[in-house]
Simulated scan of single mutants.
Amino acid sequence: MRILLYAALLSLLVSRELLDLVTEQADDEIVFPPERWAATFRSHAQLILHELGEYLGYSTPPLLERLIEDTQKIHQQRPILQETFATAIQPRCES
């Protein structure tokens, strides 16, 4: 639960800093309503993370290798949704 709080605070901090930067670069008569800024920030979050990663020198993990590896890590005891659904809709035999 604590990690979610940290993530929210970090997001808020980054959003505010970027808003300050955008406000500084924009013409003085331009207004940035908080709701509109929040929606804009949210819709560009993935791009912001990508740009920040490049700036900091992080390379993205190889996607296909990551997908293959993560798929193999699924715990054997954890049922797959389709299997659970198929089992649930099977007619039960009464003795």
Results as ranks from 00 to 15, higher is better:
residue 72 Q to K: 15
residue 45 A to D: 03
residue 92 R to S: 15
residue 61 P to T: 07
residue 82 Q to C: 04
residue 72 Q to C: 06
residue 15 S to Q: 03
residue 58 Y to R: 09
residue 89 I to K: 02
residue 44 H to I: 02
residue 38 A to E: 05
residue 18 L to S: 00
residue 76 Q to N: 09
residue 73 K to C: 02
residue 91 P to R: 08
residue 51 E to H: 06
residue 3 I to Y: 01
residue 7 A to P: 00
residue 34 P to K: 05
residue 42 R to V: 00
residue 17 E to Q: 13
residue 22 V to D: 02
residue 30 I to Y: 03
residue 5 L to S: 12
residue 64 L to Q: 12
residue 12 L to T: 13
residue 28 D to M: 04
residue 57 G to K: 00
residue 56 L to I: 08
residue 2 R to W: 10
residue 17 E to T: 08
residue 62 P to Y: 00
residue 26 A to V: 06
residue 6 Y to P: 02
residue 73 K to Y: 05
residue 53 G to V: 07
residue 44 H to Q: 11
residue 23 T to D: 07
residue 52 L to Q: 02
residue 57 G to R: 01
residue 34 P to Y: 00
residue 66 R to C: 09
residue 95 S to K: 13
residue 5 L to N: 13
residue 49 L to M: 07
residue 32 F to T: 05
residue 17 E to S: 08
residue 87 T to A: 12
residue 75 H to T: 10
residue 35 E to Y: 05
residue 80 I to S: 10
residue 19 L to R: 02
residue 65 E to G: 15
residue 32 F to K: 05
residue 27 D to A: 14
residue 31 V to E: 03
residue 62 P to F: 02
residue 33 P to N: 00
residue 31 V to T: 14
residue 81 L to E: 12
residue 11 S to N: 10
residue 63 L to M: 09
residue 51 E to V: 11
residue 41 F to A: 00
residue 88 A to D: 07
residue 47 L to A: 13
residue 38 A to L: 02
residue 8 A to W: 05
residue 62 P to I: 01
residue 1 M to C: 06
residue 27 D to E: 15
residue 10 L to K: 06
residue 36 R to Q: 13
residue 48 I to A: 04
residue 88 A to S: 13
residue 27 D to S: 14
residue 91 P to N: 14
residue 47 L to S: 06
residue 72 Q to M: 13
residue 43 S to G: 14
residue 23 T to E: 05
residue 19 L to C: 01
residue 63 L to Y: 08
residue 36 R to V: 14
residue 69 E to W: 06
residue 89 I to L: 07
residue 54 E to K: 12
residue 51 E to S: 11
residue 24 E to K: 05
residue 17 E to W: 07
residue 95 S to G: 08
residue 47 L to V: 09
residue 2 R to E: 15
residue 9 L to P: 01
residue 72 Q to P: 01
residue 39 A to C: 03
residue 86 A to H: 09
residue 79 P to A: 06
residue 62 P to H: 04
residue 55 Y to K: 15
residue 14 V to P: 03
residue 51 E to G: 01
residue 61 P to R: 02
residue 3 I to A: 12
residue 41 F to W: 07
residue 89 I to M: 05
residue 79 P to F: 05
residue 75 H to E: 14
residue 78 R to V: 10
residue 48 I to K: 01
residue 56 L to N: 03
residue 7 A to Q: 10
residue 29 E to G: 09
residue 48 I to F: 00
residue 55 Y to V: 11
residue 5 L to R: 15
residue 78 R to I: 09
residue 88 A to K: 11
residue 84 T to S: 08
residue 70 D to W: 11
residue 90 Q to V: 09
residue 36 R to I: 14
residue 47 L to I: 04
residue 8 A to G: 03
residue 81 L to C: 00
residue 87 T to L: 10
residue 64 L to W: 11
